[in-house]
Design a protein around this nucleic acid. Structure first.
Lengths: 206, 206
DNA sequence: TTGACATTCATACGTATGTATGCCAGTAAT
DNA sequence: ATTACTGGCATACATACGTATGAATGTCAA
């Protein structure tokens, strides 16, 4: 059955996921109501119950839809044949590319970190998969002398902080400083800045 | 009147503020209920209405109680008589000292950034006051050659990202890596790491 | 002792919430 | 043509929420 004759082929389920992603990221889990999600998705109030069963399961699938592709991108970057710093830069750029497609990812992630409690399973496994890759690359670089000494785990977190936080703060940047983050040019500027910053913060001083 | 004969001198109002800070940071505004706050503060359900009028005003005062002292610390660090990189390091250490007293600050702040909408007035003015100080120090350093070139605003954000994100991710670090963030030693280790990282990411390569 | 004031308390009210239920429309196979 | 099935829809229900109200209690000055 063709569910929504207007847009090309998007099913109700997809609309729900897309809208829920936006709302969960902006307003949090408790701050997002099923009524709001279904209304914005032009769906019936019962649609979430029908397609996902519960609000909790909807949230879980939202996380999965965003974090799944991220893990793939990141691990692909880490398997490149290149010096450690180059692979790390590739990973950072992969994260940016992912965020460009899923702009709500940093907000979603950071909300989980802020909760204090154990984050959702999806987030935990993403960390458990991605962090060791980054830590491994940093160890490689420390071994060959291209990366400065220091706890590799902390260095990895300092690296991850850059793409996450810079993207998170973008709306505020434009409000406080004069940088307008709407245009793609600025987006590129930020990517280049972070790439250079990560190299600077990891690289060994000559 | 002596409100709570058990603990030394804490008024109901203070308990409400303290409990609310914890809950707002962990569960967000909507995720925090007045019933939970008052119960954990051993106060009556009506206590928030009586002391603060509304939940919104309680939140506002929580933000103020945390952000007010932060602005003072930060601006004090920026007024030191020292080379730019040293003043920046002092500011980073000041932020860490503040977070040690108010561990919920990063979560509270980051939730506001994640909202996408205009953050609360308290947050905005904190940024408007603190960011120019940091940007100014970075400009000073670029002028005297101690700090590498690049957009000073982006460099400032990359600097702020370190203390905020590292503290935010601490609970997850312990769960994923082996770093146990409970003990003060680790806290010190993280401060030193961030201080070194900030210097590395800003400093001009010789 | 009385009276004024500050605070605490129990309870009520209207609304918003997640979920359950039952009915209807369209499609595809028998 | 009938049946079965998938998806959509309107509505109901119990609970949780923020806030309002008024009575009770304690403190202190006169």
């Amino acid at each position: 059955m063709n569910p929504r004759p207007g847009r090309p082929q998007e099913t109700t389920r997809d609309s729900l996921l897309a809208v829920a992603l936006r709302l969960f990221a902006h307003n949090g889990y408790r701050g997002t109501t099923i009524r709001e999600v279904t209304a914005l998705a032009n769906a019936n109030l019962g649609a979430v119950t029908y397609h996902f069963g519960t609000k909790e399961e909807l949230y879980r699938q939202v996380l999965e839809s965003v974090l799944g592709p991220l893990k793939d991108r990141v691990s692909a970057a880490s398997r490149l044949e290149a010096p450690p710093l180059d692979r790390i830069e590739a990973m950072v750029r992969a994260i940016f590319a992912h965020i460009r497609e899923h702009p709500e990812m940093p907000a979603l992630m950071v909300r989980e970190l802020a909760s204090g409690q154990a984050p959702h399973h999806q987030i935990l496994t993403t960390f458990r998969e991605a962090l060791p890759l980054l830590v491994g690359m940093i160890r490689d670089g420390q071994r060959d002398g291209s990366i400065r000494e220091g706890d590799p785990v902390l260095l990895a977190l300092s690296t991850l902080a850059q793409p996450i936080y810079l993207n998170l703060a973008r709306p505020v940047i434009s409000r406080v400083a004069g940088v307008d983050p709407q245009h793609g040019d600025d987006s590129d500027r930020i990517v280049e800045h972070v790439a250079a910053t990560v190299r600077a913060q990891l690289g060994r001083r000559p």
